[in-house]
Design a protein around this nucleic acid. Structure first.
Length: 753
RNA sequence: UCCGGCGUCGUUCAAUGGCAGGACGGAGGACUUUGAAUCCUCUAAUCGUGGUUCGAAUCCACGCGCCGGAACCA
């Protein structure tokens, strides 16, 4: 999967639209972490999004540390972030910024807001302030300090900065609206007093700006165009806009300032992403550190053997949307397997050894086989030597005393191929007093050298020679949490780490490869804990194992029953009697008006007024007018507080449709124009040439369209009737909205024979 | 309860009023000295009810469900 293959998402659409409309002439994004922990796979999604968006549009992406909360932040986290972003393959160039470098400027912005009467110093304590804020259903009340004079606010704010007051004594708040439906807009705090040491600014400051004030201004200062954050900030967008609109920020003309867009953060199954919990795991020593291979951190994943390409591919695969989704861990595993399949040389390593003695192989003899590092279909050169001798190790799982059906491996009296070597047969099983199998006695067939065989042997297993095998520590990892959606209370999986003493083929340690595939097992990576004498490997991901799946599947797996369609009854609508009366009155005045349409009009006075005015101008078309008002006009004017056109204009438009001067389709584009700029329907029709197409012209268009879509025509004629809709659509498009649907359908059906 | 957001195959993302499609998963098959990889085939979805339209996943209305919001965190 190449990096260039980025599927479109709604943010790409937004950017393309902004560029096309000239709202921006370039793209500048930013990745704005707070340095209060190690970046994890969730950050990776955002990093990939922001940086690749910038790449795609030839813009740039800033790395900005949003470091306004001195108590949690440190340089260690800054360094970790920089290292991991670079490792992922992204480059912020010279655009490394810190919100903590903006403190002086931010302070000036705050002063400017105070001078405009848009911010004030509040001296309520925290609990009281919360009380004053009201609840989701009740409006808040203004603080008694809300009307302090500009002079007093300026004075107090200056003294806050100078350290005159204790923490909590005052905060600076924006003066917005204490009864806003959006709780975030009820005079949010902008600055608080915090006498804490900042990891970069030391003790320079005793007041610190809050997120809602800092973020939008930092974006503006850096001339970010698209500020992309996660869904939980949706309610903060109003503040973002409010601050930028109320400060005169020199570099911006109206509309070119940054705008915030939200996407859904990554949720990964069986993965805990809460920073607090992650910190706790590290601090309590549940894991060995931020880079423990079981951690979802970038550094943990790197140590576990994930590659940058696999993580980028994953980010690409899961896409970007606004749905709250839970991505299955299997997708990540797919991405890393796919990448490693092409890059990891194959070697053999026996993880749970059982000794095998080849009884008919001479005691002192050894021989060497040449084994390729990659299978044929990967198509990479290279090989290593593997040595064969009388004493070997094979995997304990590859022998069964009483094998089930379809078990292709070794069992008493059965034959199996030792990869690259000989076919062997199990002659005898040696057990200890406890009944445990301690050794297998086998014979080999000298005619099968190199694994070649004239007879059919289903199974091939890996092995190593006992005399030169290298002891290796192999760390096998399983998911840290068993639950699909772990909560912070969940205990970690006790089997998340199993340390094995593996027997590795002799040639493996000298191979110059970070990642190795242990054949038939999985992908492994060197861990820095290893030494030349004693290598240590981490399991990155197992190979797919359809045998294991099959044996497990024999245990009944409850088929995921889907709670299928429970068709809901059409719920009886509760109609406000007053609305009903008003609707009845409306229907009495305008003959032919549909009951539901009347109700809808009554409930939206703006539409009702438009309808009344239109109906006055075209009293014979009330029914159509109502439909148009309720459906089309309602949709087109949702965002508008004031209409650019009046009732008579709408009446004119609807009449044009009614007397078949223009098609419905054309009428919709006329309406769009009306909504945008106002004017007269007839004039727009004339200006854009939207009058109905004559039958001759229509027939010609149909012929052209059919000629352009021979395949679809053929399929239609072969019986795929649904393609009529497609072809009809193509004709409508080709006709630029001038075709009438009914006659087009007739003519098209005829043309298709 | 108020405000905001979101509902499409098992999962995830597309379809911008015109053929519901891709990827992962799953099933089956081919091939196979990795029960891997590769290749082929199949599987399976528009939350519900009305409405607008020649045509609705998409527009309108009313429901239902899920997520977020009442920090001097970000």
């Amino acid at each position: 999967m190449s990096d260039a293959e980025h599927r479109d998402n709604f943010i790409v659409d937004i950017i393309e639209r902004d560029l096309a409309r000239g709202r921006h002439d370039r793209v500048v994004t930013r990745f704005p972490p707070e340095p209060n922990g190690y970046p994890h796979i969730g950050h990776a999604k955002s990093i990939c999004l922001n940086f690749s968006l910038a790449q795609r549009f030839g813009g740039r992406c800033h790395l900005r540390f949003d470091d306004t909360n001195p108590e949690k932040e440190s340089m260690e986290y800054v360094e970790a972030m920089k290292r991991d972003i670079a490792w992922l393959g992204f480059d912020w160039g010279e655009h490394l910024y810190f919100a903590s470098d903006y403190y002086e400027w931010l302070y000036d912005c705050a002063v400017a807001l105070i001078e405009k009467g848009l911010a004030y110093v509040d001296s309520l304590d925290e609990a009281t302030m919360r009380e004053y804020r009201g609840t989701v259903t009740e409006p808040g009340r203004p603080s008694p300090h809300r009307d302090r004079s500009v002079e007093e606010n300026l004075d107090l704010f200056r003294r806050m900065r100078e350290g005159e007051f204790a923490e909590g004594a005052h905060v600076l708040r924006a003066k917005i609206d204490m009864s806003a439906a959006n709780m975030k807009m009820r005079d949010p705090a902008l600055y608080r007093i915090k006498k804490a040491h900042h990891y970069r600014r030391g003790d320079d400051w005793v007041i610190y700006p809050l997120y809602d004030f800092t973020h939008c201004l930092s974006d503006a200062k850096e001339q970010i165009t698209h500020s992309i954050c996660t869904l939980e900030f949706e309610n903060n967008r109003d503040i973002y806009d409010w601050v930028l609109e109320n400060l005169d920020l020199a570099p911006y003309e109206s509309g070119t300032r940054p705008h915030q867009f939200e996407f859904a953060r990554l949720n990964l199954s069986h993965t805990m992403m809460s920073k607090r919990k992650l910190l706790a795991l590290v601090e309590q020593g549940v894991v060995t550190g931020w880079d423990d291979p079981r951690m979802p951190t970038i550094s943990g994943m790197r140590r576990k053997g994930f590659t940058p390409a696999s993580i980028r591919a994953f980010a690409d695969m899961i896409g970007v949307a606004k749905n709250n989704s839970l991505v299955d861990l299997g997708k990540l595993e797919f991405c890393i397997r796919e990448d490693l399949n092409d890059v990891a040389p194959r070697v053999m390593c026996v993880l749970n050894p059982i000794k095998v003695v080849i009884e008919n192989y001479p005691e002192e003899q050894t021989e060497t086989f040449d084994a390729p590092l990659f299978p044929a279909d990967v198509g990479k050169p290279g090989s290593r030597d593997v040595t064969f001798s009388r004493e070997l190790y094979i995997e304990r799982d590859d022998f069964m005393k009483d094998p089930p059906k379809k078990y292709y491996r070794l069992s008493p009296g059965a034959e199996v191929r030792l990869r690259y070597a000989y076919i062997v047969k199990c002659e005898q099983v040696i057990e200890n007093d406890a009944g445990e199998i301690v050794e297998l006695r086998c014979s080999y067939d000298p005619d099968t050298k190199g694994g070649k065989s004239t007879r059919k042997v289903r199974g091939t297993i890996h092995w190593v020679s006992a005399h030169d095998a290298v002891d290796a520590e192999v760390r096998m990892y399983d998911r840290l949490f068993l639950a699909e959606q772990p909560s912070e209370q969940d205990e970690v999986n006790p089997a998340s780490l199993t340390v094995l003493e593996g027997k590795l083929e002799a040639a493996a340690p000298s191979l110059e490869a970070t990642h190795l595939q242990f054949e038939r097992q999985g992908y492994f990576v060197h861990d820095p804990d290893g030494t030349a004498d004693r290598p240590v490997f981490n399991l990155t991901v197992t190979l797919k194992d359809s045998w294991a799946k099959q044996t497990k599947a024999s245990a009944p797996e409850p088929a995921k029953a889907r709670p299928k369609p429970k068709p809901q009854e059409a719920t009886a609508r509760v109609v406000d009697p007053e609305d009903q009366a008003a609707a009845d009155a409306l229907r009495a005045r305008h003959a032919g008006l549909d009951g539901d349409d009347a109700l809808r009009l009554v409930r939206e006075p703006r539409l009702a007024a438009l309808f009344e005015a239109a109906a006055g101008a075209a009293p014979t078309h009330t029914a159509e007018l109502a439909k148009w008002t309720v459906n089309e006009v309602a949709a087109a004017t949702k965002e508008q507080s004031e209409l650019a056109f009046d009732g008579p204009a709408l009446a004119e438009l609807v009449s044009l449709v009614a007397d078949e001067t223009i098609s419905t389709r054309a009428a919709k584009s006329v309406l769009a124009e009306l909504v945008e700029k106002g004017g007269s329907a007839t004039a727009i029709v004339e200006a854009q040439g939207l009058d109905r197409m004559g039958d001759d012209a229509l027939a010609k268009t149909i012929d052209e369209v059919l000629a352009q879509h021979p395949v679809e025509v053929e399929r239609y004629r072969a019986g795929e009737k649904k393609l009529l809709g497609f072809l009809l659509g193509q004709v409508m498009r080709a006709a630029g909205g001038r075709a009438d649907a009914k006659s087009t359908r007739q003519l098209l059906t005829k043309a298709l024979g």
